[in-house]
């Protein structure tokens, strides 16, 4: 990197030289979240050139796992292993310990370090989360989280990042998750730890990216429903927040339930739907009777219906005559 040094950024952090061509900054890329928070999907920064030929460390973290409202965002950050100290010097820390303003500031620092630090994000919209968890073949939040993380690591590999070590903040039991990732990426050194965002700077960086992205997505959320002037005074979005609960109660439509912004699969949402919504039955729930259970003894003594059964043509097509309209 024989590039002449450039003026250090305003915050005065210790930094390496900037390459002459700066890749698009995260802030610019996050503008995408402001345009279409729900459809953002997976996207990332340009890969900093050093990351293409130096072994890299990669951190994975998520934001918005618990709330009943809004998307869940997965983030990865990566940088060459020998630059980890520089990253630490930026003062990245567990995003949960930081105020929103402080997170934005640290994010600015990460943004400015784009010559060594790359990132990628995956935004999982709330309706996608609801659909995954409530579809016929249940797909729980842990599996969804694991698969999203795997997808992002693969995304980095496919983009040409020389990933050598992976650090992950755990979801569920760390050992199982670690074994799963090791099996999926046999060439990589995988470390899964609870609270990894406080232990490894590269995970802290990922955590800040994810959290900032989640905040932007929520702030700029566009409701697909035709709801005039929906109020956004929903508090933290966590199920135990009384403000959030009150907002959910106010925005419950008896037939349709909630706007897509709400994760229907959350217990809080389901409980409200059950109490206040129109009862809805699906083919795959609440079977009236276990079909494999032996028939009641009484059924053998019931008078057999004198009528012949309908011809299979009608039976197979679920067609029946009507007695009245």
């Amino acid at each position: 990197m024989g590039v002449p040094p450039v003026t250090p950024i305003s915050q005065g952090a210790v930094r390496g030289p900037l390459p002459s061509q700066t890749p698009p900054s995260p802030a610019m890329a996050l503008a995408r979240l402001e345009r279409d928070p729900a459809g953002a999907g997976r996207f990332g920064s340009a890969v900093p050139p050093p990351c293409r030929h130096r072994p890299c460390a990669l951190g994975v973290d998520e934001a918005g796992r618990g709330p009943v409202l809004g998307p869940m965002v997965y983030g990865i950050c990566y940088c060459p292993v020998e630059k980890l100290e520089e990253l630490e010097a930026l003062g990245v820390a567990d995003s949960k310990t930081l105020s929103e303003g402080e997170r934005e500031r640290r994010f600015g620092l990460l943004e400015a370090a784009s010559d060594i630090l790359g990132w990628a994000l995956h935004v999982l919209p709330p309706d996608h989360i609801s659909a995954c968890m409530q579809q016929r073949a249940k797909y729980n939040l842990n599996e969804l989280s694991h698969d999203t993380a795997v997808g992002l690591i693969q995304f980095a590999l496919d983009s040409g990042v020389q990933v050598a070590e992976v650090f992950v903040d755990t979801v569920g039991p760390a050992e199982k998750y670690e074994a799963k990732l090791r099996q999926r990426f046999p060439g990589l050194e995988v470390t899964v730890r609870p609270k990894a965002d406080g232990l490894f700077p590269v995970v802290s960086a990922a955590s800040i990216c994810a959290k900032v992205a989640r905040d932007r997505a929520v702030k700029h959320w566009k409701f697909v429903e035709d709801l005039e002037d929906i109020d956004r005074d929903y508090g933290s979005g966590y199920p135990n927040d009384p403000k959030t609960k009150e907002w959910l109660r106010r925005h419950l439509e008896p037939v349709f339930g909630f706007p897509q912004f709400v994760r229907f699969s959350w217990g809080t949402a389901q409980e409200l739907l059950q109490r206040r919504g129109v009862p809805i039955k699906w083919a795959d729930e609440d079977p009236k009777q276990d079909p494999t259970a032996p028939p009641s003894v009484l059924s053998y003594f019931a008078r057999t219906p004198a009528r012949r059964p309908p011809h299979r043509f009608f039976h197979e097509r679920s067609l029946r005559p009507l007695a009245e309209l």
Binding site: K281, A283, F314, R317, L319, R320, P321, L322, A323
Partner: peptide
């Protein structure tokens, strides 16, 4: 109903020129 002898719904069109049977596609859920 000529097969079952039970009350069944039919439709006569205008002026009872033509007879129609009414069947319902009926599945749960």
């Amino acid at each position: 109903n000529p097969s079952t002898g039970e009350a069944t719904l039919y439709l006569f069109n205008s002026g009872a020129q033509q007879l129609f049977e009414v069947k319902a596609f009926h599945e749960e859920y």
